[in-house]
Write a protein that binds this DNA or RNA. Structure first.
Lengths: 284, 284
DNA sequence: TCTATATATGAAATTTTATTTCTTTCGTTG
DNA sequence: CAACGAAAGAAATAAAATTTCATATATAGA
């Protein structure tokens, strides 16, 4: 887990929380500002749990204790306020301007939280691996496949050999050809896909590096990873797994792309060549 | 009455402090960040004073107590830190934290600008068309295809009939089957793709509604559209067309999706059914 | 279906932390 | 040089946070 971003942690490991902990998390998300001035007992009462659970919750989120969580919350609240992002989940067709503001605020908060979860050291390690990999596979299932395709597209443009596919059998067939010089980037919000887990296993058996991008830091896929990037998708207005936004994952890919771009000297020429090749489809 | 700024108070009423209080003030000013994680006793010891004096100091500064002073300090430290991180377009592998901030700031600005370009009336018209369309085609070429696929995926989940494809010939073949009841959403950053323009022409001939999402409001594709959504991709660090980010376009799709979701009563059941069908791939 | 086991949670006890009270010290003034 | 007043620390008290322990609930196995 990253040094500390309570809102990010709540968003990214919400599913891992116990029932009572979820109550606390909900209360914090909905009363960020008020919690800053509360005591353990007050928060326990307000969220209909107990002192003990609140205290444990703080630890489980990676903080030294309640005070340390509150310190972080104070900072984050300040930051949000400063950005004057009044995050509300109300979306209503009859008030489009306000709804658009709310959607924007939510997406921005999502991205900020995701960025806050990125650990520079971990990122640097991953970048090194990607730069030196012989081949990089982007793997995903279902509605995340477009993100994987986008990643492969972008990275190929940088001059890094990438593969991805829309067909599951094709993806795992490719995985079985990977070796110790290769890396696979597995993208999965829930981190619980059996198919992706077996793909990870295959990659592991072949000695390839496994990088997982997921919203769930303690999911089976996260545990099967060599390197882990956790996103902070907050889908407050919807509850199920299928409603996760793909924007945070895309954001992570884009970040990796930009960082690789600036450190790879031949990236520009690769991209230019690519651009030239598609010019024939362009007007003027 | 803790709406004050502790650093400001220290600076402005320093001369009014007693000797022991000055020691505390000095220590705080020189160790802002560390004090945030200290207890009364620790601060007393570190500043060579006593618990009582620290506690009194907090009151004298207008705070409810030590914790409340610390809360304020945490906020101010954060603010100072943030201010010193001047956001720029610099992305540098050697300073990852700063680079991440810059990327985030750029992406956020991009999204904010894109949202600002959306006109509620225009959007409402487009939503109406999408809700009542017999079939919706998502069309794109090159690296924007993943965005189109994502859109078709999402909209299908809502119960709207959508098609998209990775193969160009397949896409235009589908377009030739559209009719006046149908709509095509064409996504193209530059808006200058010959192929997408001929697709738009085909759609036009068949009487289908043409919705274009592009970064270029006066591009050929924009002019060929019946309804136009302009995104605000600003890739300052890179200049060419191929470097455009796909996030703003995705943001637009996601916005349409959310707005359709809240106004379509059967959307939830559609999504739930979809979710059930993929549960077999999920662990636990 | 019933028992055994594990686990989440809250109540109570304990420990830690903050505040208040009380006392000492030191400087000033009559 | 006593007497007063204010500043500051020590000690006592109060408050808050954490840990322990008991209980309830769910799960697995018989």
């Amino acid at each position: 887990m990253n040094s500390q971003s309570i809102l990010g942690i709540i968003c990214s490991s919400y599913e891992q929380f116990f029932d009572a902990e979820k109550k606390i998390a909900d209360f914090i998300m909905e009363n960020k500002k008020a919690v800053v001035d509360m005591t353990v007992a007050q928060l326990a009462k307000a969220s209909c749990t107990s002192d003990a659970t609140v205290s444990r919750f703080c630890r489980r989120c990676g903080f030294k204790g309640f005070q340390s969580l509150k310190m972080d919350l104070a900072k984050e609240v300040m930051e949000e306020e400063r950005d004057s992002l009044q995050v509300s989940n109300e979306i209503d067709r009859r008030n489009l301007p306000q709804s658009l503001q709310n959607i924007l605020a939510n997406k921005t908060a999502e991205m900020t939280a995701t960025m806050g979860m990125l650990e520079p050291d971990n990122l640097e390690t991953i970048l090194r691996i990607l730069e030196h990999a012989r081949l990089i596979q982007f793997a995903a299932v279902g509605n995340t496949i477009p993100v994987a395709m986008d990643g492969a597209f972008k990275f190929n443009q940088l001059g890094l050999c990438c593969i991805s596919g829309t067909i599951w059998e094709g993806q795992i067939a490719a995985t079985y050809n990977l070796g110790p010089m290769d890396a696979v980037i597995i993208i999965s919000n829930s981190g619980t896909s059996k198919r992706l887990l077996s793909l990870a296993q295959g990659a592991h058996e072949n000695g390839a590096r496994i990088i997982v991008i997921t919203n769930n830091g303690s999911s089976p896929l996260a545990l099967a990873s060599d390197y882990l990037i956790i996103t902070a998708t907050r889908e407050k207005l919807l509850t199920g797994d299928f409603w996760f936004s793909r924007i945070p994952a895309m954001m992570v890919i884009e970040t990796l792309y930009l960082l690789l771009f600036v450190s790879k000297e031949d990236a520009k020429s690769h991209i230019r060549r690519h651009e030239d090749s598609i010019r024939q489809d362009k007007l003027t």
